[in-house]
Nucleic acid binder design. Sequence first.
DNA 1: CCTAGCCTAACGGTCGTTCATGAAGCTCGG
DNA 2: CCGAGCTTCATGAACGACCGTTAGGCTAGG
Lengths: 217, 217
Amino acid sequence: MPDSDPRDPTRDGVETRAVIEEAAVDLFARRGYHATSMRSIAAAADIQPAAIYHWFPAKESILIQLQNDFMERLTDAVRTGMARVESPALKLAAAVREHVVYHGLHTREAFVTDSEIRALSGEPREALLASRDRYQDLFRSLISEGMDADELNTPDPAVATYAILLQCTGVALWFQPGGALDLDRIADLHIELVLGSLRAEDSLIAEAVGLTAGRSN
Amino acid sequence: MPDSDPRDPTRDGVETRAVIEEAAVDLFARRGYHATSMRSIAAAADIQPAAIYHWFPAKESILIQLQNDFMERLTDAVRTGMARVESPALKLAAAVREHVVYHGLHTREAFVTDSEIRALSGEPREALLASRDRYQDLFRSLISEGMDADELNTPDPAVATYAILLQCTGVALWFQPGGALDLDRIADLHIELVLGSLRAEDSLIAEAVGLTAGRSN
DNA sequence: CCTAGCCTAACGGTCGTTCATGAAGCTCGG
DNA sequence: CCGAGCTTCATGAACGACCGTTAGGCTAGG
C-alpha cells in the first residue's frame, strides 16, 4: 500500500523544503501572511502540518527566509547591473532595468517582501528594514551623483527616490508573464519614465535604453 | 459607580460608530486586516466586542465601508480638481495634486484600501475593483488626451498610467505629517516628476505647478 | 414602558505548535 | 556481507489560545 508510505521516493531530502517555500510564497502572495494557515501551506505542499516544523522552526521563519532571500538576490542583481556601465545616469538606468526585471520575474516574492514587513517584529523586522534602507540608498546615491555630473536634475532627490522605486516596484503588482508586453520592453519604458522625470536629455535616454537592453535574466 | 455604567454620557449615539471606524482603520493599517481581531478593535474603541455588532453586521463590513468611503471621497476630490482647469496636461497635474494630497491626509485609509482588497471576496471585492478601475481610467484618459493635444508624450500610456499612479499612491507609505516637507510641496514635486516623465515642456510644467498650487485644504 | 445601546458570557471553530511514534536510509563493528 | 543502532523525515493526534459571532439581559433616556 504505497499510499500510506511515510516517505515519498520521488522527493528527496531538501526538496521538501523547497516545496514548502513554494507553497508558502504562493499563499502569502495571494491571501496574505496572516490569512494563510500552516495547515493550508501543508496541504498545498502535500504534506502534514507537523512536517513543516522539521524544516522551519516557526511560521514566521518561512516568511523571514523568503524576504531575506529576495532582498539579497535583488540587491545582487542590481549591483551587478550597475557595475556594467560607467556614468551615474547609465548606472541608474541599469539599476532600474534590473529592479524591474527582477520584480517581474519574482512578482510573488516581491509583493510578499514589500507588504508583509509589518508581520515581522523584533530583530528580523529591523534587519529587513535596514536591508531595504541600504537598497534605497543605492538609488538615492545614483540620483545625487547624476545631478553632480549634470546628467540629471530634480528639486528633491529624496522624494524622487521614493517615487522612482515605488513605480518600479509596482511592476510586481500588475505584470503578468502571459501579457502583451515582455519584461525587457517594460524595463525600457520605465527607464524612459525615470530618466524623463529626472529631466535627462533625450540623447542620454536613448543611450541608456540601448546600452542596457537585452542583458537581463 | 460610574465605571460600570453601560452608557458613556460623553459619547452619544452614532459617535460610537465613528470611534469604532477610527480604531479599525488604525489597527488595519498598522497590523493588517487579518492580524486585527474584533477584540482588539473593541479595546481600542473602549467598548466590549459585542457592541461592535450593534453598528456593523460583521468584521468584513467595517473594512468594506472604510474602503468604499475612501474611494468615493478620493474620486470626488480628483474630479473636482480636474474641473478647475482646461487642458489635459493641466487636468492631469490637478489630478496628481489632489491624489497626492488626499493620500497624504488619509494615509491609513489609503493604505488599507490598496492593500486589503484581497481580504474581500464576492460582490464587495468586485465592486471595489471596478471602482479602482474607473479611477485609473480617469488618469489614463487624461494622458491619452494630453498626447492627442501634443502636450504629453510617452511610448505606452497604459504602463505610464500604472507607473504614475503607483508613485503618487506611494506617498501614503512614507509621508508623515510632522516631517520636513508639507503636502503642497510634495504635490508640486510629484507634478514635476509626472509631467517630466511624460516629456512635457518646461514651460508647461511651470504653469501646471503654479496654476494648481495652494488650492487643496 | 419601550427600545436603543451596551453589557457579560459563551458558542463552535481554527489557529500555531508540540508530542510520541515509526518507517526508511546510513554507518560501522564483526 | 550483514544487521544493530543512529539519524532523518514524516505521521496522526492533541494542546491551549484565540478567533468571529451570538444569545440574552441590563440600563437609561424618551
